[in-house]
């Protein structure tokens, strides 16, 4: 166990935890955009920035990655921290003005758009939080999507923006996306799901007959787990 201070509160924590883990366990709110408990932290949104240390040695770090240590002094709401959060939020508001989720979060944090940043007109709601890419890689284990280009041109896509033949159409990327940028469409009868520019044939539940999952996804799960396909052909409601 280590002893640290967050916002003048003395806290005991287990070694190896991050500042964010410990803060949340102790009811201290730190905003995040790219964090998800099911994933390793990425440190890309910088919303969870906090200030550590005191005086000239004080510095801003990302709480989702910084490991707690004995004697650590954390300030989760210093002026420097507020400036970083405000800047990050204003930059993202200008990048994705159409995202309702971002607008709501900004309002909660009392942050207003910076009028000097001309709002982007491309209609993209993607804030490059990387949750989709990390989920596909580490939770699903497929890596069907990744990034292309760098800097301002960076974007999430399938390789060469072509329809991916390794994507299983599971839709985990769309469900984890915090801004609703990744779109998934289902045909009126429910037999086809479209995502990342590819149509996936849906499997019907062997009991109730409802379409419930892409065939490619079931084949993938069967291959990974060894569970026969027949057993997987039952939807979660009938199971």
């Amino acid at each position: 166990m280590v002893n640290l201070t967050i916002d003048n509160r003395k806290i005991q924590a287990e070694e190896g935890q991050t500042i964010l883990d410990v803060a949340r366990k102790n009811g201290i709110t730190i905003p995040t955009l790219c964090h998800n408990d099911a994933l390793e932290p990425s440190g890309s949104c910088r919303m969870c920035s906090v200030e550590i240390g005191e005086g000239a040695r004080a510095k801003v770090v990302t709480s989702c990655l910084y490991p707690v240590a004995e004697g650590l002094v954390v300030n989760s709401g210093s002026e420097r921290v507020k400036n970083v959060r405000r800047t990050v939020m204003q930059l993202l508001l200008a990048r994705s003005p159409e995202s309702e989720q971002l607008a709501r979060m900004a309002e909660d944090l009392g942050i207003h758009p910076e009028p000097r940043f001309k709002p982007s007109e491309d209609g993209s709601k993607c804030i490059l939080c990387r949750l989709c890419v990390r989920t596909c890689e580490t939770v699903v284990g497929v890596s069907a999507i990744g990034f292309s280009f760098r800097g301002p041109e960076k974007n999430v896509c399938t390789p060469f923006h072509e329809s991916s033949n390794i994507c299983i159409g599971c839709g985990a990327c769309a469900s984890v996306c915090p801004t609703g940028h990744i779109e998934m469409h289902v045909s009126p009868s429910g037999d086809v799901r479209t995502i990342w520019g590819r149509d996936f044939k849906m499997a019907a539940c062997s009991k109730c007959g409802l379409y419930f999952a892409p065939e490619d996804q079931l084949t993938y799960i069967s291959g990974r787990t060894g569970v026969p396909m027949e057993e997987l052909m039952v939807c979660s409601s009938c199971r």
Binding site: V84, F117, I127, L128, R150, P152, K154
Partner: peptide
């Protein structure tokens, strides 16, 4: 701005806005 890897928001978006 063009050489930013684009991973974190302050560098990717911030340098773009500075440039503008």
């Amino acid at each position: 701005a063009s050489e930013s890897c684009g991973k974190c928001v302050p560098c990717r978006e911030g340098l773009q806005r500075m440039r503008e």
